[in-house]
């Protein structure tokens, strides 16, 4: 019974957070609702028995990506959105209006129909008869990362190094001799 309660609360946090992320007008609030959604997804991972993935999601997304987004919002003064853009000095809010949401919903409906068509094959597929009991996954993931998937592991470390150095260089303030 507590499994069900945990699943429902995590799923609710995820979906409510996602709906609010894509609809609020203030971008800092949108970042906080993304945090709520990511915490919900971590809870869903825990109910699926993926303990290591859940805590890595917590460390990387909550402690890394959301903090990064919040810093970027602050550094680009995105919350007020009061600057003039090329459409003139009218303060057009940068968070979307009725027309953009309509276009978004139409395309999302197309995507949804494609996914549902794919799911007919998924539901015909055989599934495990007996759901395995919860077991620790850390050692299995570790063995897999340095055994079967060692190439992807090493390439991802190079990728992260490239992202680190690249982000630092691209966003460095330039001297005024352009």
């Amino acid at each position: 019974m507590f499994d069900k309660i945990l699943f429902i609360s995590s799923a609710l946090a995820t979906i409510v957070g996602a709906v609010l992320t894509i609809s609020v007008k203030n971008i800092m609030h949108a970042a906080v609702f993304l945090l709520l959604s990511l915490l919900g997804v971590a809870g869903l991972y825990l109910t699926l028995g993926a303990d290591f993935v859940a805590v890595i999601q917590l460390v990387v997304y909550v402690g890394g990506v959301v903090v990064l987004m919040v810093f970027a919002v602050m550094l680009t003064a995105g919350s007020s959105g009061q600057k003039a853009n090329r459409f003139g000095l009218v303060k057009i809010p940068t968070m979307g209006n009725f027309r953009t949401y309509t276009i978004g919903i139409v395309f999302a409906a197309l995507v949804l129909m494609t996914i549902i068509k794919l799911y007919t094959n998924v539901f015909a597929m055989s599934r495990l008869a007996q759901i395995p009991a919860y077991s620790p996954t850390v050692s299995k993931i570790g063995i897999s990362l340095v055994g079967t998937h060692v190439l992807a592991f090493e390439i991802s470390s190079v990728l992260l190094l490239g992202a680190l150095v690249g982000a630092a260089i691209v966003s460095r303030p330039r001297r005024e001799n352009r």
Partner: peptide, 20 residues
């Protein structure tokens, strides 16, 4: 979650909101 993400990417005009 996927569908909501797609709506967000297409509907928002703020680049950071698209990344979210």
């Amino acid at each position: 979650l996927f569908v909501l993400g797609v709506i967000g990417v297409l509907a928002r005009k703020n680049i950071i909101a698209i990344l979210l």
